[in-house]
Nucleic acid binder design. Structure first.
Lengths: 137, 137
DNA sequence: TTTTGTACCTATAGTTACTATAGATATTAG
DNA sequence: CTAATATCTATAGTAACTATAGGTACAAAA
């Protein structure tokens, strides 16, 4: 049996986060030792590994909860699981595209600045005057 | 003089958000009408436009506060303003790179799935078994 | 066996940047 | 003047944790 600290080290999920997941019912409350400390088995280690991995991929807790529910029903079709992953992929791509637009504007702003005091600073001016922007964000 | 609603429409910042910024002392408390409603001038419109623009670029409130402080001292050198913008640019690029790695893994996961029930679902398997990952995230 | 140090327990509050709600008052258009 | 809309304050909720305080359990050394 694993203590919460063992589980934390094996999964990379911090101890308070494990307790938080228990509260959120992402993981079920485990057995307790005589002295009321949590004791985990391999089942819980696997489940938490799944959660960690999905979180690393940026999936929201709600999406993970859905996937966990799906994996509890092995005979169901997996279209829903695919849909969740694909939705997340689409959202990730949108976010990348958005950040790339912001990157371009930040490059423009930082490279444009050749003043040496705030009153001529292109960074400050760019932020003050939206008209200087290239795209309409 | 502008009401809070006017200011909101002109800047695109929602009314409760404007009040929140006032509480956070990003904007100073404006004059009030006879009936205790906020009344804004052009100065506040410009400041809020600056804030909105910086937020759209993803700058944190603290960074914006720094920039606002800097812009209040026009004779100071603008190196600090540049540093803030450049730090943010670097952070943005890191985030893009990270999301691109996640994108690649999501593509692998979603394209790899040719099972039709959960027990063969590659999405679920990939999340369960970290060893299937290509990179060590 | 006792001590000592670390790990663990619960409950609560703080984080970021807002958003939502409730119940009361102000302003404005007709 | 009335009705509709806007505004006011204060409080709580959001996501996904993280930090803190005050107390108990456990494991290894003396």
């Amino acid at each position: 049996m694993l203590s919460i600290g063992d589980l934390s080290r094996k999964t990379g999920v911090k101890v308070p986060t494990i307790r938080y997941y228990e509260q959120m019912k992402l993981v079920t409350a485990p057995e307790r030792s005589e002295g009321n400390q949590r004791r985990y088995s391999i089942v819980e280690l696997e489940r938490l590994t799944f959660i960690k991995h999905a979180r690393d991929l940026g999936l929201k807790i709600d999406a993970i909860r859905e996937l966990l529910d799906l994996s509890a029903h092995p005979e169901q079709p997996c279209a829903d699981a695919n849909r969740i992953a694909e939705d997340h992929l689409a959202a990730t791509r949108d976010r990348i595209a958005q950040l790339q637009r912001l990157e371009a504007e930040l490059v423009r702003i930082t490279e444009g600045c050749h003043g040496d005091s705030i009153k001529d600073c292109y960074v400050i001016q760019s932020l003050s005057d939206h008209a200087l922007c290239q795209d309409g964000h």
